[in-house]
Amino acid sequence: MSVEVRLPTVLRVHAGGNSSVSLDVENLRELFEKLTELYPAMAGQVVTDEGSFHRFVNVYVNDDDVRYLEKLDTKVRDGDVVTILPAVAGG
C-alpha cells in the first residue's frame, strides 16, 4: 500500500534531495502530515499553517488538480501518483 509523491526541483532541497517519496496514506491531509514528519523542512511549503495550499503550488492526484477535486480531503489509493508543481506562466 503506497502512494508515490513527486516533488518539483524547488522542493527537493527540503526533502533530502529526493525527487520522489513513497508514503502509505489514505488522503492528502495525511500525506502532507507524514511528509512533514519525515522532512520537517517541508513544513509550510505546500500546505500553509492555516491549512490551505500555498498560493503558488498545484497538487495533482494522477494528473488531476486537487483544487477541483476534494482539496486536502482528496482520497488516495495504492498505486496513485501525487505530483506537486509550482505555478508558472505560459504565453
Binding site: P8, T9, V10, L11, R55, L85, A87, V88, G91
Partner: peptide, 18 residues
C-alpha cells in the same frame, strides 16, 4: 508542465498566477 530545468523558480514564492 514546463520542463523541470526551466520552471524558473528559486523558491515557491517566485511562482506566478496570471
Amino acid at each position: 508542465p514546463s520542463g523541470e530545468m526551466v520552471d524558473g523558480l528559486r523558491s515557491l514564492d517566485d511562482g506566478y498566477i496570471p
